[in-house]
């Protein structure tokens, strides 16, 4: 069953002429990492806040695991959804351990379970357990965001809403936290709705990117689709600005095949139009998108060197070291 189904969700703030979110419909499957991307004011935060009902939709409905969210008690709904925001919203008068424990306490977990969970979460987000007794103000911005993440994960919600959680961090801390979030996601398989207006962040993190403009969804597709087949001039402009396509054109198929973490396929089925190891990834991307999941054989001098798939390209996209090396 789908994790989240939105049906014509609309939010019109009182006194406004244009809806902030305009009849938006989409479906999110369990375990998907969705990134909401778009310029300031396009309605990302508004859409997110409708999901945990901090804003009530003006019209339209949405369903969480098949249940109409409007029929759930609002506090219960929110305790089932992790929520992390840019300003962290950590409670300054509570120690780190108490901050993380808020939702489990609201849910009435027994004390020992909460204590064990705090340690587990501190380990997960890479903070030393000694931080339990600190106050938020005694932590750096990046550390505070880690606590915010741990707090959102505390009651093990199936779904997480994250509104520019890394927006206020410097580039290095940001990349590190992105890596860790991806590692956590590989372990926990949450359904994540993540807001950003940073195209690079979106392409790196997302399984699918929801590009928004003026309260509407312009395109909702995988990062590679967005790069290679923008459905709208606005998306083309957005992805064009990212410089990723240019970078892909500088990387060879050979290097992508050698990317660690992916099994080189030994499948030798011949393709009519094989790739060459020295072809660039931009070309490969265009060709791969037209053939689908099975990918394309890479052939050099009549000898098969492997099979390149979209997963290889995705791995490259997520590897700033590989991309950065081409700059």
């Amino acid at each position: 069953m789908s994790m989240l189904v939105a049906d014509e969700l609309t939010k019109l703030f009182p006194g406004e002429s244009q809806p902030a979110v305009d009849a938006v419909s989409f479906t999110v499957e369990p375990g998907e990492f969705i990134v909401l991307l778009g310029p300031s004011g396009c309605g990302k935060t508004t859409l997110l806040k409708m999901i945990n009902r901090l804003y009530e939709p003006t019209s339209g409905r949405f369903f969480i695991e098949g249940v109409d969210a409007h029929d759930m008690p609002v506090t219960e709904l929110r305790r089932r959804i992790g929520y992390a925001i840019q300003q962290t919203g950590l409670f300054p008068h509570l120690r780190i351990a108490q901050n993380i424990a808020v939702v489990p306490r609201l849910l009435g977990w027994p004390r020992e379970r909460i204590e064990a969970r705090i340690d587990e979460l501190l380990d997960l987000v890479g903070l030393p357990r000694e931080f339990r007794q600190r106050y938020p103000r005694q932590l750096s911005g990046g550390q505070q965001q880690r606590v915010g993440l741990a707090r959102a994960l505390a009651a093990d919600p199936a779904m997480m809403l994250m509104d520019e959680p890394f927006g206020a961090l410097d580039a290095i801390t940001r990349t590190r936290l992105q890596d860790e979030l991806m590692a956590i996601q590989r372990k926990l398989h949450k359904t994540i709705l993540f807001v950003t207006h940073d195209i690079e962040e979106a392409l790196r993190l997302a399984d699918r990117v929801m590009v928004m403009k003026d309260g509407r969804i312009v395109q909702f597709a995988t990062p590679l689709m967005l790069l290679a087949q923008p459905e709208d001039p606005f998306v083309a402009e957005l992805t064009g600005a990212s410089d990723l396509l240019r970078q892909l054109s500088l990387i060879t198929v050979e290097r992508a095949l050698a990317h660690p973490g992916l099994q080189p396929s030994t499948d030798e089925t011949a393709d009519l139009t094989p790739l060459h190891p020295q072809d660039d990834l931009r070309l490969a991307l265009t060709r791969l998108l037209s053939v689908g999941d099975e990918g394309l054989v890479v052939v050099e001098d009549g000898r098969t060197c492997g099979r390149l798939t979209l997963s290889h390209l995705q791995a490259v996209l997520r590897d700033p070291a590989l991309l950065g090396a081409q700059r």
Binding site: N52, L54, Y83, P92
Partner: peptide, 9 residues
Amino acid sequence: ILEAANGMG
């Protein structure tokens, strides 16, 4: 902070 409190249920 208030929004976080509400958002957490």
